[in-house]
Design a protein around this nucleic acid. Structure first.
Lengths: 342, 342
DNA sequence: TTGAAAGCGCTAACAC
DNA sequence: GTGTTAGCGCTTTCAA
């Protein structure tokens, strides 16, 4: 049970050539079944562990799919990674993860680090990169997938949706509920591209309804937490006490806002309607349940995986795969539709 | 801007040997400053991206630290990874993550996959492994760290705390509040070792107080979500309507339980005290705020990283580093101490 | 189905 | 501070 047992050692012990050992460790390679079994037994007894680093160099294939996400502590991105990872692992591919803290400079560094590992594809969140980051992606010579967004000028493939357009549906719903004085919390810092897009989409939708959209509450740099949502709600009430409804950049901030209403004795949705984004579990459990948008985070990951697998077989042209989000109406904007809990 | 630009190409273009290019890409290596600058400029212009796979093989160092966690979608583990990753990245080390779905068989596969990549250290969650998984760890020839637990027979290093002992503090607190009929939700499936330990610790603490501990509500296989917490609470009320307090295996299930109380008009903490575990953000935001245990998830990761860095310099003996968790008393068990929100 | 020779793109080790 | 030589542990390629 020592490290530095090499294929050569296994070969010698099994009485075959290294090449036969190498073949025994690959599913598809042609080795007599008995030979393979014997080799694997010997390898296990010797405590041999296959050395990918050598195989990677010689075969020029690492089995890595590189991924950058803004934050590891985010249930939406975690679901995407889980979906991606589950589909890829079936094909012997492994996710190599890096996070960017919602910062394009850090993303650039992450991209460079990841590309040095010679991944077979690279997935990035969103379409905003530094000039050099973009150049690195363009020159990578592997499939590049921008996810969770619809970039105006994609580097290569895209799997996502329009964060801005999604807000139209949300505003339509609130207007249909009879609200006119509607506020937005978050999305004020450019770093969170998708949050900023949602905010822009909100403003556009309000304008389309002929409504004023001056009720924009800043929640600071991402990630916007529950606490920031609560603080923003307090500020909103102070600044615009007659607000009827508020859309938050995510379910986390929306839940924070909801709790602030509870602390102040404001009834939701009667005194204040609240909506979020992301279909986090909390949205379906809290009291009242939260109106939100389901972006199908996991499916985004699965779709990215499928795209990568297909691209490996037949390198086709650029793909644009939309994953249409879905409005989920719940108790926080509609008394009739609360059905939360156990 | 093509892949397959190699160090040789950069060397030729810069009019130096490959070895000098190699040195230019390492911080510590001795190269004239002008030479280095010139080389890096040429490399950038040619679109050269350093090939780690080759460097890894030759130098027998990959810069990887392998980590297995039960689930990627868990704020506690995510915080540990973030702490670990942040400290390691300063030293040029990169986390290579795999998840196990709370399943030792899947952990075994993950460990093998990870070891093939020749990491320089491996971190696993908890001390329960398959026999072969344990053998793989023991023979890995690199520092092994078991985290988030205090295994009875550690493989190598340990950074964690006793999940069972932590429950004593919690039960003491509830008893001090005057409760006697106390229930526990979750931790019934062995797969979640730490959850099961908390449940055992709860039972031991109840026994120590001379209290009955028959109020154990099963919540099924991990991860225990908010929804399962809510369902378990409903069952608890049905089975033992006179229950005064309930300890949940995590803050997520505790929050679910809390919402179930709200839906039924039970006042928390007056009619039912509720406590969780993990110090998730929600515990400090929900109404009332949740009594919980802060395991200092991020610090666990940082401490693991420090241990690894020290072990690389001077391979010392086995380390056991305890990270003492802290009881956080809040509104869900103590009316006096609610201070939640913005 | 199996084996022998060559080499993947870097860096250790040594020379100057 | 820079160059030369050899080789990391596998797999590709070709031959049997």
């Amino acid at each position: 049970m020592q490290r530095s047992v090499k294929m050569k050692d296994v070969a010698r012990a099994a009485g075959v050539s290294v090449m036969t050992v190498s073949r025994a460790f690959r599913k598809d390679a042609s080795v007599r079944q008995e030979t393979r079994d014997a080799i694997l037994k010997v390898a296990e007894d010797l405590g041999y562990v296959f050395d990918s680093t050598a195989a990677n160099l010689r075969s020029q294939r690492t089995g890595f799919v590189a991924v950058t996400i803004p934050s590891i502590n985010n249930a939406n991105f975690a679901d995407t990674i889980a979906g991606l990872s589950d589909v890829l692992s079936g094909e012997g591919l492994q996710v190599l993860l890096a996070y960017t803290n919602y910062d394009v400079a850090q993303e650039e560094r992450a991209i460079e680090q990841l590309l040095r590992r010679r991944p077979e594809a690279i997935v990035v969140t969103g379409g905003r990169h530094t000039a050099r980051g973009r150049r690195l992606l363009e020159g990578a010579g592997i499939p590049v997938i921008e996810a969770w967004d619809l970039p105006a000028e994609p580097v290569d493939h895209v799997v996502g949706f329009s964060n801005a357009a999604t807000m139209e549906t949300m505003v339509d719903h609130l207007v249909a509920q009879g609200h006119e004085r509607i506020a937005f919390i978050g999305g004020d810092v450019d770093a969170d591209t998708r949050g900023a897009d949602r905010r822009r989409g909100f403003m556009a939708a309000m304008a389309a309804h002929g409504l004023a959209c001056a009720r924009l509450i800043e929640a600071g740099p991402p990630p916007i937490s529950m606490r920031e949502g609560a603080r923003a709600m307090a500020r909103l009430i102070a600044l615009h006490p007659d607000t009827q409804a508020v859309v938050c950049v995510s379910d986390l901030s929306a839940f924070g806002a909801l709790t602030e209403c509870q602390r102040r004795g404001l009834r939701v949705p009667q005194d204040m309607a609240v909506a979020g984004f992301g279909a986090y579990e909390i949205a379906s459990i809290c009291v009242p349940t939260l109106t939100t948008v389901n972006p199908f985070s996991r499916r985004i990951g699965e779709e990215i995986a499928r795209l990568i697998l297909e691209a490996r077989k037949t390198p086709a042209g650029r793909q644009l795969r939309r994953i249409a989000p879905e409005l989920v109406v719940a108790g926080s904007t509609d008394q009739q539709s609360d059905a939360g809990g156990g």
